[in-house]
Write a protein that binds this DNA or RNA. Structure first.
Lengths: 208, 208
DNA sequence: GTCTATAATATGATAGAC
DNA sequence: GTCTATCATATTATAGAC
């Protein structure tokens, strides 16, 4: 009961935070493949090597786990996108962004899949923030692209659809990894994939 | 019990076929948004305006409905891809394919979503056919693209990854329709989307 | 904090009348 | 062929001992 070592508002001990992170990590693995309904608390508990009531001691319900996970996932998702700098060289900025997304897809496919399943299920939990927060950021970056095109630094193309294309192609390597592995010799050649995607998405934008 | 009007092996009456199609149509709507586990037979029955036992009279289990649906969906999926003709003009063939896929995404997003959810869930039911049938077709078309590039009719790029890019960008408009609607003014401008996608995916391939 | 036991509910599937 | 009623099971969540 002592709180001498605590310092912030949410009075969580170190072990609590560690347990919660453990549960979320295990839940991510389950939710990202089987979706919300296809995942049971038993599965999560088994992965985390905890009992089911113990999991529900840290999260009050399955939905609570899911929502916490979704929020945690969204936090890191936009970082490389926001990092696109209008003052930088357009092709350099775009290449860096595409490569960052490709690395995310290969290194951490699960958050991408969780996100995809959530959106395909109607995105009940995220629609509001997509219409406001996400939309504001997307519009801002679309304006950056438009500026570059107006300056003659990029060939003209609709900026919003360019963003969608970059997202879809890069995330495809996470979301459809199973299919890609069936169609290519395993293990997939990451360097080849990254070079090809850069070629396909950005070559048409280059101004001589 | 009369079979005078029947002609083929599966002795189904016309009304049976109609009912089965009705169930599959309603099931598609449910499975494509909520996945296998998120969908109940009750939901399907309600949509079809049938009782639950009546649905199970036509399909012996929920899994039976799901698998039948998956098979039906896959049948039409590859048609426009197979139609790509090595003897045709490369840019014309590619444009026709991309536009066909875009129309499919806008007009029939549900099969695409069903497919996507299945793949993200591990594609237990389809892995085998992806490794054999689909892979053969993909390799064949990749060879067609390679031929065109060798002939100098297309700028060189890895053909397999080009196929993945086309799939991902076009199907994105079906699978992530909810997100796109949040980020663009509704209703989405189809002509603009199609033109932009053609630009982004194919402009870099054009040889002057 | 963690467990076993269990309540409460949802759902797949079947039995049997009509 | 279609229905109501029901069984059997799985799963969320809680109660209460330790």
């Amino acid at each position: 009961m002592s709180r001498t070592s605590d310092d912030s508002a949410p009075k969580k001990t170190r072990i609590q935070e560690r347990r919660e992170k453990l549960v979320l990590d295990c839940a991510l693995e389950a939710f990202a493949t089987n979706g919300f309904h296809g995942t049971t608390i038993d599965q999560i508990a088994a992965k985390a090597d905890l009992s089911k009531p113990n999991v529900l001691y840290y999260f009050k319900s399955k939905e609570d786990i899911y929502l916490s996970l979704l929020q945690r996932t969204l936090e890191g998702w936009l970082d490389p996108f926001i990092a696109i700098d209008v003052a930088g060289d357009p092709m350099t900025e775009l290449e860096a962004y595409v490569l960052a997304k490709m690395d995310m897809s290969f290194d951490q496919p699960l958050p991408s899949r969780l996100f995809a399943i959530e959106v395909m299920s109607g995105a009940t939990q995220m629609k509001q923030s997509m219409r406001t927060t996400l939309r504001a950021i997307v519009d801002e970056k679309a304006a950056v692209f438009q500026t570059w095109m107006d300056q003659g630094k990029l060939k003209p193309v609709d900026p919003h659809h360019l963003i969608f294309s970059i997202w879809s192609v890069t995330q495809h390597y996470a979301d459809f990894a199973v299919q890609i592995e069936c169609l290519l010799d395993k293990p997939p050649n990451r360097a080849l994939a990254k070079a090809a995607v850069i070629d396909i998405l950005l070559r048409g934008l280059r101004v001589n």
